[in-house]
């Protein structure tokens, strides 16, 4: 049986994980304040001006939101399960982003730095491999291409392969928009 589509935004968190608004690290720091934590790791991914030898001028990010929301919420929960940490919060921006704009934000708080770093690394790696989001790069010469990505696996999270595959090489078929 195919599960029937339900609400398009699962209520897994008070805030959507996917947004078309600029990401706000300060807000996530406030939301995760914790006297139990001695370590805070913040990872931000920003739009880079080059990729695979080509000059990138902008990136459009698109998402299949019903699944992407759910996947990011699950990655937060899985990161909490795997590591001895107090908080893991992840946000991803979609839409048209300029060079330097922040596309993804991960905030981890833990008692000690070791777990915080490891958890943050796990969270961002897993986001890059398991969330239904696509980069569409615009190049200096006016062409565009979707960035080559990682096939989605949809096994149970405990069986999921580790996020270690290469990505981010653009596909060769650049086309005019």
């Amino acid at each position: 049986m195919v599960p029937r589509p339900t609400d398009q935004r699962p209520k897994t968190n008070m805030q959507p994980h996917i947004t078309d608004q600029p990401l706000d690290p300060e807000a996530l720091l406030r939301a995760t304040e914790s006297p139990e934590s001695g370590a805070l790791v913040v990872f931000g991914g920003t739009v880079r001006a080059h990729n695979d030898g080509r000059k990138v001028t902008a990136i459009n990010y698109s998402a299949y939101e019903p699944l992407a929301e759910k996947a990011i919420a699950e990655i937060e929960r899985e990161t909490m399960r795997r590591f001895d940490i107090q908080h893991c919060q992840i946000r991803h921006r979609i839409g048209d982003l300029a060079i330097g704009d922040m596309s993804v934000l991960v905030v981890v708080r833990a008692e000690h730095r070791g777990e915080a770093f490891e958890a943050g690394r796990y969270a961002i790696d897993t986001v890059k491999h398991e969330v239904a989001i696509w980069k569409y790069e615009e190049y200096e010469d006016g062409t565009h291409a979707y960035v080559k990505g990682c096939p989605l696996s949809h096994e149970h999270p405990s069986n999921r392969r580790h996020a270690d595959a290469p990505g981010d090489e653009p596909q060769h078929e650049a086309v005019e928009r």
Binding site: M1, V2, G45, Y64, P66, L67, V127, A132, I133, G167
Partner: peptide
Amino acid sequence: CAVGDHFVGRDAYLHEGDMLVLLPPVSGG
């Protein structure tokens, strides 16, 4: 493949009103 907020296998059945969603390799981050 997905329907709504669930992945579906190739052997799943689509019913009236179901939209089949095709998701190529992802590149978020």
